[in-house]
């Protein structure tokens, strides 16, 4: 098991090198550089421009910039933001808890609804429930996040006044210093009455928006996997033992059906952290996604490179973790190596 884990971990190293190259190259393909963006249209003397460029190392040949960047990364140095002069690592981890909170809540929402909904659809295959659910899930799956978010804000927040429009908590009513960066935890720690409820209230819409695509995916995946498993001989054995339908389906069938679903859930955790970019922008959620979008606008090379690398590292780690969990729920893999 340990060896298996190490092997899988070693396989991620080439991925990181490819990522370094891609992030470095991609941002440089966009016209403009940090200096031009900062200078704007005011105009500046060519001497000052050259000096700025020199300070940021942008007057070096591109290949040298790349090697300096890789060298620094290998020493754990993610660089300093051109705009804020803060260490990229510090900025990232200040904002990251907000992203984690949002994406984990979204996945939790998707799993809690998607797995039972998909399982019931499989058991009642062909029924109106099944057909309705599968039609809705196609819509959910293909929903453009941006449009869906705006739609919900207009309807739920603006028209019906059921939820707040944006942010993580009502800053007029509540204020406390972040301790963990997770609003749900901090609001409890603050001891202020109603803070947790307010934080939860702010989570509702972003979670629905971010959770819609994973929800549709998980529900469909659970359904098809469950359909396959329900025809298996061991399900018949479980029924022949005189077990209740709930136990036959909920334990004997579902346990097997979830094996492929766990992979999907794991991948969704990763992609929702990266995909939170849109949701965070719509709801002014102060997370990494919003920060990255801003960094693109400012051509903040170090922030972008560092941010993308860090998110990638986290997504890769999550996928690795999924492989381990996979082994835990599927004994055939655990003992296979």
């Amino acid at each position: 098991m340990v060896l298996y884990f190490l092997k899988r971990a070693a396989l991620t190293i080439p991925t990181f090198f490819a990522l370094m190259f891609l992030t470095f190259a991609a941002i440089r393909l966009v016209p403009g550089d940090p200096v031009e963006v900062r200078v704007g249209e005011r105009g500046i003397s060519p001497e000052r421009l050259a000096q700025f460029r020199h300070e940021l190392g942008l007057d070096q040949p591109v290949w040298k910039q790349f090697f300096d960047y890789v060298w620094a990364l290998l020493h754990g140095d993610f660089g300093t933001s051109v705009v804020t002069n803060e260490k990229v690592l510090t900025e990232f981890f200040t904002l990251f808890p907000a992203t984690v909170e949002l994406s984990l809540s979204a996945i939790l929402f998707a799993v809690m609804i998607g797995v039972p909904a998909g399982a019931i659809a499989a058991v009642k295959r062909g029924s109106w429930y099944d057909q309705t659910l599968m039609s809705i899930s196609v819509v959910g799956f293909s929903m453009p996040i941006f449009w869906w978010g705006l739609l919900l804000i207009m309807l739920v927040a603006e028209r019906l006044h059921l939820t707040p429009v944006s942010g993580r908590i009502d800053l007029i009513k509540f204020y406390f210093e972040p301790v963990t960066g997770f609003m749900l935890i901090d609001s409890v720690l603050s001891g202020q009455k109603g803070a947790l409820l307010d934080a939860l209230h702010h989570l509702v819409l972003p979670v629905i928006v971010l959770g819609t695509v994973p929800l549709a995916t998980i529900a469909r995946m659970t359904r098809s996997s469950m359909l396959e498993v329900l025809g298996e001989d061991y399900v018949r054995t479980a029924r022949a033992k005189g077990l209740s339908p709930f136990r036959v389906i909920g334990l004997h069938a579902l346990r097997n059906a979830l094996i492929p679903v766990v992979t999907v859930i794991g991948l969704s955790v990763g992609s929702s952290m990266a995909g939170a970019v849109l949701t965070e922008t719509i709801f002014s959620w102060p997370g990494v996604g919003k920060w990255l979008i801003e960094a693109i606008g400012r051509r903040d090379y170090p922030a972008l490179q560092g941010g993308v690398m860090l998110i990638s590292a986290i997504v890769i780690s999550v996928n690795l973790l999924v492989d381990v969990i996979y082994g835990v729920i599927n004994p055939r893999i655990r003992h296979g190596r």
Binding site: T237, A240, K241
Partner: peptide
């Protein structure tokens, strides 16, 4: 269900796939 599995039991043709692989 109280009778089957207790007073009447059944075994099947494919033993390998009749046992649940997860337990």
């Amino acid at each position: 269900r109280r009778i089957i599995g207790r007073d009447i039991a059944m075994i099947f043709q494919e033993p390998m796939s009749s046992l649940n692989p997860c337990f």
